[in-house]
């Protein structure tokens, strides 16, 4: 099924959890924040969410800034 991650289309298997997606993308879940369909998630929620077709996910992390 198709989802949108950071404005890019991505195909994932049905019943993929958010945690699995994070692993698949090679991200460290302690250093990112996620907006799942515009809701900001706590880290504990990552493993409890199963992705649905059409989901919109924003993943952010820290970069240099003043």
């Amino acid at each position: 099924m198709e989802i949108t991650v950071n404005n890019q289309q991505r195909t994932v298997d049905t019943s993929t959890t958010l945690s699995a997606l994070i692993d698949e993308m090679g991200l460290d879940d302690k250093r990112i924040a996620i907006e799942y369909n515009r809701d900001i998630l706590s880290r504990e929620q990552f493993s409890t969410i199963t992705l649905q077709a059409g989901d919109t996910i924003e993943i952010v992390n820290f970069v240099g800034g003043g």
């Binding site: 991650v5 950071n6 404005n7 890019q8 993308m25 991200l27 990112i32 924040a33 924003e58 993943i59 952010v60 992390n61 820290f62 970069v63 240099g64 800034g65 003043g66």
Partner: peptide, 8 residues
Amino acid sequence: VALRRVNI
């Protein structure tokens, strides 16, 4: 620090 979209 600043916050940005992860560059996938």
